[in-house]
Design a protein around this nucleic acid. Sequence first.
DNA 1: GTTGCTGCAAAGTGTTTGCACCCTG
DNA 2: CAGGGTGCAAACACTTTGCAGCAAC
Lengths: 142, 142
Amino acid sequence: MGNEEIDVLEEYISVNNLKITKQRRTVLKIFLETKDHVSVEELYNEVLKTEPKIGLATVYRTLALLTKSGLALEMDFGDGQKRYESSYRSVHHDHMVCTECGKILEFNHPLIEKYQEEIAEQKNFKITSHKLDLFGLCQDCK
Amino acid sequence: MGNEEIDVLEEYISVNNLKITKQRRTVLKIFLETKDHVSVEELYNEVLKTEPKIGLATVYRTLALLTKSGLALEMDFGDGQKRYESSYRSVHHDHMVCTECGKILEFNHPLIEKYQEEIAEQKNFKITSHKLDLFGLCQDCK
DNA sequence: GTTGCTGCAAAGTGTTTGCACCCTG
DNA sequence: CAGGGTGCAAACACTTTGCAGCAAC
């Protein structure tokens, strides 16, 4: 399991007077093992295999906790459900979403980032986060 | 009222064997007069002033129709509701969303668009649309 | 006069919350 | 053993849908 990640979570938990539980450990473990951009339902189904009594609400609450503690990023590709990816080890990236098969490619382009900063500065806007999604057809679907 | 827009709508409607109604005309008219990025509820409240008997469902259905006919663009800034902007006369642009006051600034940076194309080509991905949202604090809120 | 459209209410979807009981620290 | 966490079900917010009557063509 992600040793560093569990440390991050325990740190956040102790700072905030919260508690480590079996469910939280399990959700974190499965979350780290799972592909990026999981939906809550998908993660819940995986977690059920290890922790058959867990409630969906606990998965929602734990994902919110992971987001607050900096271990997860919440994303929304406009398909009506939240998706999450691990953020602790990974560097920022943007997404190409295939509208045919749902596949998600990650990319990063330093110059795009640079011009975002530039134009924000022009408009006197202070960026705290951003998201860039390209929609279209992947290699296999076009 | 948007003369060209009503033509576009009537064209779409006649091609698809649909019907022009008072409600559809009103929704289109108010939609064109309203600020960009309206939520359905906001538009509904405006439309009520002209058409007090209209149902919320009709506004939803008409916005879907406008989207299909190319007059409106559907957007999602992750606040849990769909927002729309007029697309017929306007050129593509991206958004800076102020997380404090909700204000939305529009911008366009040709080089960002260019590098998007470039990186998509590298990954053999065919872009059909994209969205770039910057989140942060606007001039007045920072 | 067909057939699509409307308003209404009911149903859906994804997510959050209230609560009694349970478990961690 | 105090206070947070859990599972469950109910509540929520937004959106879609079924239907009977209505209106456009």
